[in-house]
């Protein structure tokens, strides 16, 4: 089966780093947010008590700031050096949302109700763009508020103490938004939707089949075919261990994510 390259090694590794640090942040933050829940104490104990959880949280936070900086660096490198500033910021390879995304949302809802065909999608769908920018928003909001809470004495020099109350609300609610979103909507959109169930390994292998490209991203397929670029994107299958490791990692994170989601729901609505 012919394969097409979608993600390079940098993207794939970065996604694994994001997944690990994100799970680490959620698991070590939850015992504090839901301290009243009976599961909070044992989850904290599992992570080495309150001080252990705090350390895990800070290490994963440092990783988060690291990948965020790495990504900014990568985007600048890609646009300036690889593409030599020949980059259409509103084009199909850009993450910037544009009118087509709005049209796609409308068409997709029409399709949901059986009132029209599926939208013709391109390289980045609107829900993928949302996921992408949500990380910017999330890392920004949670990151800045987290730094306030991490270094209160330092920030206390420039801000009134009640900034820490604001930071607590933002940090806690934005974390709930991020964890709730990733463990339900991201998991469904990428792995759980019927045509991909139970897992789409593209983020781990980097490759998708030509059939998938034709079916799911017809505009991209057409564009590449018209420009005779399909050969350029053709690729070999990954070594089987990479595929296997990716699938095992994917299942593990989805499983842990669902488990944490159950605890979040219990903490939020039951206790």
């Amino acid at each position: 089966m012919a394969l097409v390259k979608r993600f390079n090694a940098y993207h794939r590794i970065l996604h694994v780093v994001i997944a690990i640090s994100f799970i680490g942040l959620v698991a070590s933050g939850m015992p504090i947010k839901y301290a009243q829940a009976p599961w909070a104490a044992w989850l904290a104990t599992l992570l080495g008590g309150y001080t252990g959880a705090a350390l895990v949280h800070r290490i994963c936070a440092a990783i988060t700031f690291g990948y965020f900086a790495a990504h900014i660096g990568y985007v600048l490198y890609d646009i300036a050096i690889v593409r030599k500033f020949k980059f259409n910021i509103l084009g199909p390879e850009s993450m910037v949302p544009w009118l087509k995304d709005l049209q796609d949302i409308i068409s997709n809802f029409k399709w949901f109700f059986g009132k029209g065909p599926r939208p013709q999608l391109d390289h980045w769908t609107y829900w993928e763009k949302f996921d992408y920018w949500a990380v910017f928003w999330g890392v920004g909001m949670i990151g800045v508020s987290g730094l306030f809470l991490w270094f209160p004495v330092f920030f206390g020099q420039f801000f009134p103490g009640w900034a820490f109350n604001i930071a607590t609300v933002i940090h806690s609610d934005e974390a709930l938004l991020a964890a709730g979103f990733i463990f339900t909507i991201h998991f469904f959109n990428t792995h759980m939707r019927p045509e991909k169930f139970p897992m789409d390994p593209v983020i781990f292998t980097g490759n998708m089949t030509l059939e998938e490209l034709k079916h799911e991203r017809p505009l991209e397929y057409q564009r590449l075919a018209n420009e005779n670029k399909l050969d350029q994107y053709a690729t070999e299958a990954q070594a089987s261990w990479i595929t296997d490791a990716g699938i095992i990692f994917g299942f593990l994170t989805v499983l842990i994510g669902f488990a944490l989601l159950v605890l979040i729901i219990l903490g939020q609505f039951v206790y």
């Binding site: 997709n108 949901f112 059986g114 933002i170 609610d173 938004l177 709730g180 469904f188 019927p194």
Partner: peptide
């Protein structure tokens, strides 16, 4: 923050459920 959470989840959960329903059908 509360409105942001409710808004985001309301939109995307509806989106997800409708999608799952149509795809299965």
């Amino acid at each position: 923050m509360t409105l942001l959470l409710i808004g985001t989840f309301a939109f995307f959960l509806t989106h997800t459920f409708l999608w799952a329903y149509r795809a299965l059908k």
